[in-house]
Amino acid sequence: MKYITALLSCLFVMSCSQNKNIQDLNGYWEIEEVVMPDGTKKAYNFNNTIDFIELTSDSTGFRKKLKPNFNGTYETSNVVIEETFVVKKENDSLHLYYKTPYSSWKETILLLDEEALQVINKNQIIYTYKPYHPIKIE
């Protein structure tokens, strides 16, 4: 009986940790690490651009590259294209289907909470992001 209770407890904890609150996507994110399919890792200690992600509904949103300034504001160039996406739940996973005038692609969300965002693309490259907190120098 102890084993069944322990097993059910583990399954419950694992299933709860699988629930991703899609609203946690909203905000400013900076890349922290990239892991290549062969396991090679590249850490990003400094980022001159960040991603701003905003959900415009329960299943759609956009991502835009921004350059943070030291006074707490952000810049974007006229060349930067807003990447729109659709969120779809398929096979117990959350997927982001991106589209721009030039391309379309899919990323699968591996981890999403207030402290981290981790996605994998079709090339099996894993991107890990952390929330961006602006540096204000006055």
Rank of each mutant, 00 (worst) to 15 (best):
Gln124Pro: 14
Tyr129Arg: 08
Asp92Ile: 01
Lys67Pro: 00
Tyr44Ala: 04
Leu94Thr: 02
Ala6Pro: 00
Phe12Trp: 06
Glu82Thr: 15
Leu110Cys: 03
Glu83Asp: 11
Ile4Tyr: 12
Ser17Asp: 05
Lys41Ser: 11
Lys99Cys: 06
Asp58Phe: 11
Trp105Asn: 02
Lys20Val: 00
Thr60Gln: 05
Glu90Tyr: 04
Ile135Glu: 11
Asp92Pro: 00
Thr40Ile: 13
Glu32Met: 08
Asp51Trp: 09
Phe70Ile: 15
Glu75Ile: 08
Leu94His: 09
His133Met: 11
Glu107Phe: 02
Thr73His: 03
Lys64Tyr: 13
Gln118Val: 09
Tyr102Thr: 14
Asp113Gln: 03
Lys65Gln: 15
Tyr97Glu: 05
Ile50His: 07
Phe85Leu: 05
Leu8His: 06
Trp29Gly: 02
Thr49Asp: 07
Asp92Gln: 09
Tyr127Val: 03
Ala116Thr: 07
Ile81Phe: 04
Val119Phe: 03
Thr128Val: 06
Thr76Lys: 14
Gly61Arg: 10
Ser15Asp: 06
Ile125Asn: 11
Lys65Gly: 05
Pro131Gln: 00
Lys136Glu: 10
Leu7Asn: 07
Ser59Lys: 15
Ile125Gly: 08
Asn69Ile: 09
Ile50Met: 05
Ser103Lys: 14
Gln23Pro: 02
Pro101Gln: 07
Ile125Phe: 10
Ile120Phe: 05
Ser93Lys: 14
Val13Glu: 03
Asn26Ile: 05
Phe52Lys: 11
Asn78Glu: 15
Ile50Arg: 02
Leu66Trp: 00
Tyr132Ser: 02
Thr108Tyr: 02
